[in-house]
Nucleic acid binder design. Structure first.
Lengths: 114, 114
DNA sequence: ATTTGTAGTTACCTAATAGTAACCAGAATA
DNA sequence: TATTCTGGTTACTATTAGGTAACTACAAAT
């Protein structure tokens, strides 16, 4: 899900897109935000994601240094995720995307008028 | 390549990701930038993209109002693309991503020292 | 008369991504 | 004793994205 050709590009922008340019990662980063959150919470908060894909994405985000994983040696297991400094620094960008979309999105849904 | 479930979400951020959250679209928008550019130029400037995928992405970007397509009725055909106001408004976000990556990217390449 | 050039489209095939269901550990609870 | 709880992993399958090559139109140049 990481695009290796992009990640090996000599263009830093292309490398960035190779790292975070897929549909799940921005969503996951946005959901985590500034809190510490457990795997199961992410799984239930993020609609339509499967555990398998969530695990994969979290692993990659950790490898790329965007988030920190804290596994407590308990049973049943408890694992907490939170954004690293790098991940936190990405949040304002996601905010900008939100604002951009609100400003320019065309209302494609037919509106009920009564 | 547009994720319909994302685009139909009631969360504006999720919708935004459904629209531009894939690997090619940010690259294409970044390459176009503030200029007017022809199809063939895009095809040769963007590495590793196939004509088919480029066509598809451009069509979606046009449908989503990020770019304008100008087809001259000539032979051989000439088609020019440029960003719309919405597309131009997205450029600063891409700039932020570039800066973010430059600041936080870990140098994974082994450096030659001599 | 043939080739060149542009911006695609189409059919076909392969590669990548994502979903599903079953399974694991081992303590706590019923 | 059986069940639940959590955070995964694994194997298998389905869906989707992407690549390749051939083809189109027709004017202009060779």
């Amino acid at each position: 899900m990481r695009d290796e050709r992009f990640c090996n590009s000599n263009c830093p922008f292309t490398r960035a897109i190779g790292t975070i340019g897929n549909k799940w990662k921005p969503i996951i980063i946005n959901v985590i935000g500034t809190r510490t959150i457990r795997f199961g919470q992410l799984d239930s908060i993020i609609p339509l994601i499967s555990r398998k894909v969530l695990t994969e994405q979290l692993k990659e985000l950790e490898e790329d240094g965007l988030l920190e994983r804290l596994a407590y040696k308990e049973l049943p297991p408890r694992v907490e995720y939170k954004l690293s400094e790098k991940g936190l620094a990405f949040l304002p960008i996601l905010e900008n995307i939100k604002e951009w979309n609100l400003k320019y999105e065309v209302a494609s849904m037919p509106q009920e008028i009564d």
